[in-house]
């Protein structure tokens, strides 16, 4: 199968993830959408690795997974503590930066 199709799939997944980040209010869902975007990127990297015939993209994909794992830990901790203090997981409720 043509590896370029994987790139289309990656673009589609990224777009879905981005849209989710922008329009969903639930912090958990937003978080999942971010993961979706990250994995779309991973897919693109691996596809490029295949297209170019070297391993660079795959190595970066591993890095991304490691970073994503760390990010999940921190991000979930933030969401949990946010929920504890406000009894809500809505991102719009966490708008203290507003003037």
């Amino acid at each position: 199968m043509n590896p370029v199709n994987y790139l289309y799939l990656a673009a589609l997944l990224f777009a879905i993830g981005a849209t989710g980040v922008l329009i969903r209010r639930n912090a958990i869902v937003v978080f999942m959408c971010i993961e979706l975007m990250l994995n779309a990127c991973n897919l693109a990297f691996v596809a490029f690795s295949r297209l170019h015939g070297n391993l660079d993209g795959q190595i970066i994909a591993f890095f991304t997974m490691v970073v994503a794992a760390a990010e999940v830990v921190v991000g979930l901790a933030i969401i949990v503590s946010l929920f504890r203090s406000r009894h809500s997981a809505s991102v719009d409720d966490a708008s203290l930066m507003k003037l």
């Binding site: 980040v21 922008l22 719009d92 708008s95 930066m97 507003k98 003037l99």
Partner: peptide, 17 residues
């Protein structure tokens, strides 16, 4: 310009995108 700072994470995300 202050009005851009509305405190909603998604609107910051929009400007980032």
């Amino acid at each position: 310009l202050r009005k851009l700072q509305n405190g909603y994470a998604r609107s910051y995300a929009v400007s980032m995108f």
